[in-house]
Simulated assay, not measured.
Amino acid sequence: MSIEAPLLIILGPTASGKTRLATRVAHAIGGEVFSADSRQVYRQMDIGTGKDLAEYVVDGMPVPYHLINIRDAGEKYNVNDFQHDFAAVYQQVNSDGRVPVVCGGTGFYLYALLKGHANDTVPVNEQLRPELESLSTDQLLARFHATDSAYHALADISTRKRLIRALEIATFLHDHPDAEVGFGSESPVYQADIFGLAPPVEVRRQRISDRLAARLKQGLIEEVQSLLSQGINADSLIYYGLEYKYITLHLIGQLSFDEMHARLETEIHRFAKRQMTFFRKMEKDGLTINWIPDEWPEAEKIAYIIRHYGEFKSGLAGSM
C-alpha cells in the first residue's frame, strides 16, 4: 500500500493535554484528528474515556475527528479492528489533502500503525483463559517472562487484560512453532512524525486527581449507571477497566464510594506510568519521539510541531 501524507502523532499519558493540543494543531494546519484510544470508539462512554468533544471546536470552528463513537458500548474492539478502520479513514483524509493528526495514549494502537503489528490469527484459548484469570497480575508477569517467543518483543503487557492476551499468544506460538502468524505483514506501516507530552510525575499525578474529581462531579457514576440500566452487563463494563470497572463494582455493591475512589485513583496513576513505560519501549524499538517540554506555552508547542512536521514531510519528499 502506498502511503502519502505522513502521520502527525501526538501521544502522552492520560491527563497530559493531548486532545487540546492535537485539536489546535489540526485547526492550524488543515488537519483531521484520528483518535488512537481503545475506549473512545464506544458510544455513550464519554466522561470515563475522556473524549472531551468540546475541545474539537477551536475558535468557533469544528475540527473533524475520526474513530470516536463508532461502536456500541458492550461490544469488543481490538487492535486489528483499529488498523482496518484507521486505514479506511486515512485513505479518505489523504485523498482530500488533509493532514492526519493522530492523538492517543493507547501505545499498542500507535505501535500497530508504525510497525504493522497484528495478532488476529491467534485464536482465543478457552481452556487457558480461566487458568490465567485465576492468577494474580504478578504471577501472570512471572509466567510471561518465563516463556519465550517472537511475540515477546512486540507484546503490550500494560494492563492485566492485555497481559493475559499476550500470554495466550505466547503460549500458542510455543505450542505451534511452525504456525504462520502475521504480525502485521498485510497491514500498512505509516511514516510518522511523533511528538510526546510527558508532564513531570508530580504534575501528572495532580492533574489525574483533579480530573477524576471533576469527572465524578460531571456525572461519571451516572454514565456507568445508565449503561447498566440499558442492559449492558457488569462483566462487560468491568472488561473496559479503570473508571468502568471500579464504578461498576461500586454500583453492584462490591465497593463503597470511598473504596472505589481510592482504588480508581491509584489505578489511573499506575496506568499512566504503564503508558510511559510503553512509550519508552517504542523508543527502544527505534521510533523517535520528540518530547515537548510541559512548561512551554501552548502557542510555542503548536509552532514547534507545525515547523517540525513541515521539515519532516519535506525530508521524506526529498528522499523519494
Rank of each mutant, 00 (worst) to 15 (best):
K281H: 13
M260E: 10
F172E: 01
S226Q: 13
T49D: 01
Q127M: 09
L135H: 01
G48W: 00
E283T: 12
V41S: 02
I47E: 00
I208L: 06
N94H: 11
Y90K: 05
A234Y: 02
D138S: 13
L128C: 14
R20T: 14
Y244D: 05
S136Q: 10
S209L: 11
R211K: 11
A179R: 05
I29C: 14
I232T: 05
H27E: 10
Y151G: 06
G318E: 15
D258H: 12
I268V: 12
Y65A: 05
G97S: 06
N69V: 04
R143T: 08
E295G: 09
K18F: 00
I47H: 03
G318H: 10
E180P: 05
C103F: 09
I268R: 11
V124I: 15
I292V: 13
T147G: 13
T248V: 01
A179G: 04
N80Q: 07
E4Q: 12
L316P: 07
I305Q: 05
T277S: 12
Y246F: 11
L140M: 12
H84N: 10
L140A: 01
Q254R: 15
K18Y: 05
E259I: 06
V25G: 04
E298D: 10
F279A: 10
R280C: 01
E298V: 12
G97D: 11
R274N: 15
M320G: 10
T19G: 09
L110H: 09
R24G: 02
H66L: 08
P130D: 09
L21R: 09
R215T: 08
S187M: 15
A118G: 13
R263K: 15
Q230F: 01
R143K: 15
V181C: 09
S319I: 12
Q127F: 13
P13F: 04
S158F: 05
G104P: 06
E259W: 01
I292S: 07
G12L: 05
S2Y: 13
V224Y: 02
E295R: 13
A262P: 04
S136F: 09
